[in-house]
Amino acid sequence: SKGEELFTGVVPILVELDGDVNGHKFSVSGEGEGDATYGKLTLKFICTTGKLPVPWPTLVTTLSYGVQCFSRYPDHMKQHDFFKSAMPEGYVQERTIFFKDDGNYKTRAEVKFEGDTLVNRIELKGIDFKEDGNILGHKLEYNYNSHNVYIMADKQKNGIKVNFKIRHNIEDGSVQLADHYQQNTPIGDGPVLLPDNHYLSTQSALSKDPNEKRDHMVLLEFVTAAGITHGMDELYK
């Protein structure tokens, strides 16, 4: 796709999030870079409003799984890469995230190029959380598991539907599940690639910047598309 050509090198990323969870309002600002050749993201996020009212790991899918245009699609799968094909005009990404036995996040993001920078601007609203639950009670460990993110075409809306389940580790050794339902639709009216069913395999590492006084998260992530085999004719070339 034409959009794919915008991702040949390292691309700067800007992320802006405004959130409200159970009436606790907050903002997060992030910057870093993405390299789609390797499916690599390096980002640093800062809570610009003081202390973040929710655990950082609960925002990873909104912040970095928010820029799935940096996923590495192998050559034989490039015609299934909706995310890059929607660029530079970008796409709207909407999600509902259900935390098992707790509340939910609803998010709406616009992901697009502004100049040479890929920008992810998000509004997040969280409701029905227990004040002493795993999320508002800050009981999650500061780490992140690997996940597969399942993608299918949504021809009606000229976009994709995505769903997956995140496993958050809790300090007591148990797990907090979070079910994600995602819809992506193009902002522009140019042609986009509608994929066959496949998935993104994601690995994320969270860390801290020892010199950063503000509440923050440093993230390194690798994302690769998989799940579609080479056609038989490919094998015999």
Rank of each mutant, 00 (worst) to 15 (best):
V111E: 00
L177F: 14
K25N: 11
I46S: 02
Y38S: 15
Y236H: 12
S27C: 13
G115C: 06
V218D: 02
Y150H: 08
L220R: 12
T37I: 06
K139R: 13
V60E: 00
H168R: 00
I97T: 02
P57L: 02
L177R: 08
A86P: 04
E221G: 01
I151V: 11
E141V: 07
R121H: 05
G126D: 00
I127F: 14
L219Q: 01
M87V: 05
N169Y: 08
Y91N: 01
G133S: 11
V92D: 03
L194P: 05
I170F: 04
L14R: 14
K155E: 11
E131K: 08
Y65N: 00
D75E: 11
D35E: 09
N134Y: 12
G32S: 00
L200R: 00
H180P: 01
G173D: 10
D132E: 07
I122A: 02
E4G: 11
A178V: 10
D101N: 07
M87L: 12
N148D: 10
V10K: 04
L194M: 14
N134D: 07
S174R: 13
R72S: 11
K125M: 08
M87T: 03
V15F: 02
S29P: 00
T61S: 14
N158D: 13
I160L: 10
T58I: 02
L219P: 00
T117A: 06
M77K: 03
E33K: 09
V15D: 01
I170N: 14
M77V: 06
K213T: 06
M217K: 01
F7C: 10
V10A: 10
F98S: 13
S204A: 09
L6R: 15
G32R: 00
R95H: 00
K106E: 07
D128G: 15
V149I: 15
M152T: 12
A225S: 05
N120S: 13
T62S: 14
P53A: 02
L177P: 07
F98I: 07
Q182R: 00
P12L: 03
H147Q: 07
L194Q: 08
V192L: 10
Y199N: 06
K106T: 08
Q203R: 11
